[in-house]
Amino acid sequence: MSKQLQFKLVLLGESAVGKSSLVLRFVKDQFDDYRESTIGAAFLTQTVTLEDQTTVKFEIWDTAGQERYKSLAPMYYRNANCAVVVYDITQSASLEKARSWIRELQRQADPSIVIALCGNKADLSARRQVSQEEAKKYADEEGLMWGETSAKSGEGVQEIFTAIAKKLPQNAPASARASGRAGPSGRTGVDLNKQANAIPGQNEPCNC
């Protein structure tokens, strides 16, 4: 029997590393050389079918402007099952920024979150500043998935999302799937198992 799973995915990374382009390639298989920077937040969904006929639906939260809006963090991280942290392989500073996002995720998000580190703009490898070895080594140390992509050529894009989809069902506890907050396209209702009022002294590990 084929299973259907739904996950919330947040995209993080410095501005202009190609977060929105990556999603656009994944969702619509398009690329736009002169994309304007995302304002506020964008929201898209895309479904991936795995070999065992499991379909995984991603609700993708593109988090532009996050730097300006620190207070939106709880909303992004709440019930997020996976995060794709993007850097630009031609900008070593963007990997630094990615590291700080990963630290933030480890601090703020649910401990079971699947994090993928993604080196974008692989088509510009002539101007490469971040070596594959360096990024891979860091990802291994932190226990992250890692891959290089080019939103422009499409290289590696499908692969990284499929890899995340494969890792998720076994990785995420059943409750994370059941209570995943859905977007406009597929609402699953609210999680009413949560206490309406937090009991003092009960320190929840996540923001929900």
Binding site: I39, G40, A41, A42, F43, E59, Y69, R181, P184, V190
Partner: peptide
């Protein structure tokens, strides 16, 4: 409106 999160019909948090 600038967050685009509650935009009628399209914002991910509009329904909520």
């Amino acid at each position: 409106p600038n967050l685009h999160l509650f935009a009628p019909g399209v914002g991910p948090m509009y329904e909520d």
